[in-house]
């Protein structure tokens, strides 16, 4: 399925739709948020993408631990890499939004801290990988760390930020994805345009990188 082209075209069309409808479509007028509500299509979609890629990366790491197949290891790494790119973009779009909604790029909000820590955890994964020269060993140890890191990621971005006061939408009575805050037009663009569009784009990037890595793996084994 990944060799086909239809999903790449679909990704392009969905993103075209997201950008056009996202910037030109009507949005509900909310106090404070105003037009920044359009960030939903970009910022929130990034976190969805990041979470999906980290979960896929985790699954490939588990697969690697079971079967010891280097292809699984490469896929796990590349999905984690794309996850980090999406997470960084999520943090960036979030802080640009926060500049206008909260008054500062960074205000030590628990959600901001959680997101930054999540990225650090995954950056450490790459440090660990690169510190090991033996391919087999590096693959196994980093797979173990990936499983551990994912388990630690969960409280970091899902549980703790929910327990403390936060300015971020979705907590403490602030607006978020529920029915009162975004209308059906926005919901259609978000769920059918932005989320699948960005996720497919990430999949495409990952797929390209994985293919490069697989080629170099083949080259190595042929030499």
């Amino acid at each position: 399925m990944l060799r086909r082209n239809w999903w790449k075209i679909l990704s392009f069309l969905l993103l075209l739709y997201t950008f056009t409808a996202g910037f030109l479509g009507n949005v509900p007028a909310k106090p404070i948020l105003n037009e920044t509500i359009r960030n939903l299509y970009f910022h929130v979609a990034m976190w969805f993408g990041m979470m999906i890629f980290f979960i896929v990366s985790l699954l490939y790491s588990l697969k690697y631990l079971r079967h010891n197949n280097p292809v699984h290891d490469i896929r796990a790494v590349e999905f984690a890499r794309t996850g980090i790119v999406f997470g960084s973009l999520g943090l960036l779009t979030g802080s640009i939004w926060a500049r206008w909604a909260w008054g500062a790029f960074w205000s030590n909000d628990p959600k901001q801290i959680g997101a930054a820590v999540a990225l650090l955890i995954y950056l450490a994964y790459f440090v660990l990988r690169n510190s090991l020269t033996d391919r087999d060993k590096s693959a196994r140890i980093s797979a173990v760390y990936n499983v551990f890191a994912f388990a630690m990621l969960f409280p970091t971005i899902w549980i703790i930020p929910r327990m403390v006061e936060s300015l971020h939408p979705g907590g403490m009575g602030n607006p978020a994805l529920d029915t009162n805050d975004i209308d059906s037009r926005m919901r259609v663009i978000f769920w059918f345009g932005a989320i699948p569009g960005w996720t497919l784009l990430g999949l495409w990037i990952t797929n390209l990188r994985t293919r490069i890595q697989l080629l170099s793996l083949n080259q190595e084994s042929n030499v």
């Binding site: 959680g114 650090l120 955890i121 630690m152």
Partner: peptide, 10 residues
């Protein structure tokens, strides 16, 4: 330390 510090922050 590199692996541990981010993990321990929460």
């Amino acid at each position: 330390a590199i692996l541990g510090f981010p993990l321990i922050i929460p």
